[in-house]
Design a protein around this nucleic acid. Structure first.
Lengths: 275, 275
DNA sequence: ATCACAATTCCATATTATGGCACGCGTGCC
DNA sequence: GGCACGCGTGCCATAATATGGAATTGTGAT
């Protein structure tokens, strides 16, 4: 009977209760590692059984979630993958990048990543794994901070300073290893070095023992499109190998940029002539 | 003012109008190849501007859609990819399959697919593309019928006859090339041959000039888990090569099945002893 | 067999989503 | 230059819709 009124969190002007609640349910299913029962979902959503039940029934009809008929537990459905695939198909990046990534993996035998910058974070779009035993934890579809990854720094280096500051303010610069860059000035200097060098290096800044090299990909508009990286244990990714790998990476990133319609010379001219 | 009452389509007992509408909007964005403007969305959803606008604002807040700030047009957002990735991570299949797929691609130089059976259809989970020029159109996250694909037939062959009949009744057997199997009896015979052979062959049954070989992957419970295939133009995938490729495919599928905990001997025993 | 707990169904109620209307902006046509 | 059209945006009274309490059914353990 008593219907709890919509809590006026007022964070954003637009709210549609059911949608918010349904999507919160999806988020919970995404976070939880295994399936969730109705009883588990309720406290997490702070909603009553029947409400959650109804939501799940509808989500199930749309196949955004599937219910295990044996256990009655809920899990994210394949429809989400279907929609998600369409989302990046639209970006048209992954398919084109794949051959370059494969070739890099082949050449160096280390794990290759392909990412974009989304909401100021690194978003892993594709991964071509090393066959060797030491593997990195990052999975496709997951996120990482920009300031302590090679891909992240490669992409930040393509942005105007004001953008970089905004991202730093939003996400901070938390140290995660002894090598992590933790001040805005140090990051600015690092990005300058990246621009001069043409590629970025993550020297155990995100994970001890892990060294990565990253290069940015530009699109036809000349804007940052994505970045690719090669990651491996520091003992294999020795400092001597860095320039060689960096060169190969820049070449691959450059070729992909070309394929996406990037025209470096013209872009530079336009830049200096603009306004 | 006049609020159109919820049309009693009564297809399914559970309906939540807003959710249905919002998810319909996502489906439309997924179908349309490019971005959609608000004005395009309204007729497709048969809803009024303000309603659609509100829906899109909420979906945008949740990052299921993104609005191009320049054009004001909407497109599916990366959050969907994030959620979708989690959906198959849960299945835990893709990651484990990848090395086998890569190896097959390497060995034969043709495109390798990895699929599951979902709702009686082939659902493409992963693809390792041939470097060669001739490429197949199937994209990850898309669907195909089961009866005219190698992966599909490989998976159908693992199902009890009653299940196969149900799927055939649901989706039909439409001819798409001269070679397509179009009768239930022919399909039953074909599946028997597949079981005897250990792998399935799609001999230009879905696309003229395209020949595929597929093998099923079983999971720890002994049940069908997925299938993998090698696809290529008929002139390269000659009938002479079929046995050799089939053997390699079966070996890969078998190893992956092992990794997933499948125990063939025991399964056979259990099967003959069951009930 | 009995209990406890979870999932499911039903229903009156008032909260919430609705769409009509109006505003502002950019674009192209007269 | 002015005018009109199309599109996105915002507000608001209204009633249709989602809500959660209560009751029922299902399931598994003691």
């Amino acid at each position: 009977m008593a219907r709890v009124p919509q809590s006026k969190t007022t964070g954003s002007p637009y709210k549609v209760q059911v949608l918010d609640r349904a999507l919160a349910a999806l988020a919970i299913l995404a976070k939880s590692s295994s399936d969730c029962s109705l009883a588990e979902l309720c406290p997490a959503l702070k909603l009553h059984k029947s409400t959650v039940h109804r939501l799940m029934m509808v989500l199930e009809q749309h196949r955004l979630v599937v219910k295990n008929p044996e256990t009655g537990r809920y899990r994210l459905g394949l429809r989400l993958y279907e929609l998600g695939s369409r989302a990046i198909d639209g970006l048209d990046l992954r398919g084109r990048a794949r051959p370059y990534l494969d070739r890099l993996q082949d050449e160096f035998g280390e794990t290759v990543f392909f990412c974009i910058l989304d909401e100021g974070q690194v978003f892993y779009v594709e991964k071509v794994e090393s066959q060797r035993s030491v593997r990195t934890a990052c999975t496709v579809g997951s996120r990482a901070p920009a300031y302590c990854t090679a891909v992240g720094k490669a992409m930040l280096a393509e942005l105007p300073d004001s953008e970089v500051s905004k991202i730093v303010r939003r996400w901070g610069l938390k140290p995660v290893t002894p090598n992590t860059i933790t001040t805005a000035t140090a990051l600015r200097a690092e990005l300058k070095a990246v621009r001069a060098r043409g590629f970025a290096i993550d020297d155990e800044e995100k994970e001890e023992g892990l060294r990565c090299i990253g290069a940015a990909v530009r699109s036809h508009s000349g804007k940052l499109a994505a970045a690719m990286s090669i990651s491996g244990p520091a003992f294999r990714m020795t400092k001597e190998r860095v320039p060689q790998i960096g060169r190969a990476l820049m070449e691959a990133a450059g070729k992909l940029s070309d394929e996406l319609g990037y025209q470096p010379a013209q872009a530079v001219l336009m830049h200096s002539a603009a306004k």
